[in-house]
């Protein structure tokens, strides 16, 4: 029994030593995050001509004077930033560093959107963590895996390795003056509260909309989900660009067809991304294809569809993103 206790004690001791080492590296990592977040903050401030100062860093990260000073010292010592008249500016080196973190962030969001199946509400938060972890090599690998994507899922540009940041053309939905056909090009994911609002309205980049009414408080748009009145406070966080293409009307979602009914695929929602989208395309679920509901699971989900002479089972959350035009007496 004594030996037993001794071993237990030893095990606990090793555990503590291990935990201590882990805490230390954790602390170093937190330090790195703070410095890099400050870098990003100075980067955007410089770009938008807003002064970046000790106070603004303090406010941005909600930290003490002392911590903010320490971060600034680190930045200046490692020649990433310079101080001019109490304002902070990034050096070339610093700009590159900041840009790499932004690239990490956007690539990771794209990765999450395309391959992970993680709920879109969590993308930003996950990417905020991951942007500090990815090494340059990993970033390049990721880029290669994703096929060198141009945009992140919110519509922001992902600059290539050599490239500087660039803006995607578009104007804020709250600022447009004429009604007509538009396409959503960007959805801002901060602040989180408003972003959640946008998600609830099911508005996403690349989505076609038709602006039908503008007044002081809101913008009225027609979308594939119906007509929505968007408060200006939310509309400021959505960017749109004018397009020629028609907004298709009178469509049904595939999951709303009943067993035995059939329809012609008109489009796949832009929210279907990455692997999921490509798989559906490969199976022949493309605009113009005929699709028929054959069977349903006891619970009604998944359901089996006949498409190009094959039986394919799809879950309803996928089927609801496939728009069809119902065929009569199909």
């Amino acid at each position: 029994m004594n030996i037993f206790l001794l071993i237990l004690l030893l095990a606990l001791l090793t555990g503590f030593v291990f935990l201590f080492g882990k805490l230390k590296s954790e602390r170093e990592f937190r330090e790195k995050i703070r410095v890099e977040d400050a870098l990003k903050h100075i980067y955007t401030s410089n770009k938008e001509n807003i002064p970046a100062t000790l106070n603004s860093i303090k406010g941005h990260q909600k930290i003490s004077d002392q911590s903010a000073l320490k971060i600034i010292k680190t930045l200046i010592d490692s020649k990433l930033a310079e101080r001019k008249k109490n304002q902070l500016f990034l050096t070339e080196e610093g700009k590159k560093y900041a840009l790499n973190i932004i690239k990490n962030h956007r690539l990771w969001e794209r990765y999450l959107a395309e391959e992970s199946g993680l709920d879109e509400e969590h993308w930003h938060k996950e990417a905020e963590k991951m942007e500090h972890k990815l090494t340059e090599k990993e970033r390049r690998e990721l880029r290669k895996k994703l096929g060198n994507p141009l945009r992140d899922p919110h519509g922001d540009a992902i600059p290539s390795e050599e490239e500087d940041d660039f803006e995607i053309a578009g104007e804020q939905l709250s600022e447009i003056e004429t009604t007509g056909k538009y396409k959503v090009v960007h959805v801002e994911d901060e602040p989180h509260e408003i972003y959640k609002e946008i998600l609830k309205l099911q508005i996403y980049p690349q989505m076609p909309v038709e602006v039908t009414g503008i007044n002081e408080n809101s913008v009225t748009i027609k979308t594939e989900h119906g007509t929505l009145a968007i408060p200006k406070s939310v509309a400021t966080n959505i960017s749109v660009a004018k397009v020629e293409t028609e907004l298709l009307e009178g469509l049904q979602k595939l999951d709303s067809l009943k067993v035995g009914e059939s329809g012609i695929v008109v489009k796949l929602s832009e929210r279907l991304r990455g692997v999921a989208r490509r798989r559906l395309l490969d199976l022949g679920i493309i605009p113009g294809s005929k699709i028929k509901v054959m069977y349903e699971n006891v619970s009604g989900n998944p359901r089996a569809y006949e498409i190009k002479n094959t039986l394919i089972a799809l879950r309803n959350d996928i089927a609801e993103q496939i728009f069809v035009r119902k065929e009569e007496n199909g």
Binding site: G147, V275, R278, R279
Partner: peptide, 8 residues
């Protein structure tokens, strides 16, 4: 495979 265009 169903296709050669994807990334699997």
């Amino acid at each position: 495979t169903y296709s050669l265009l994807s990334t699997s």
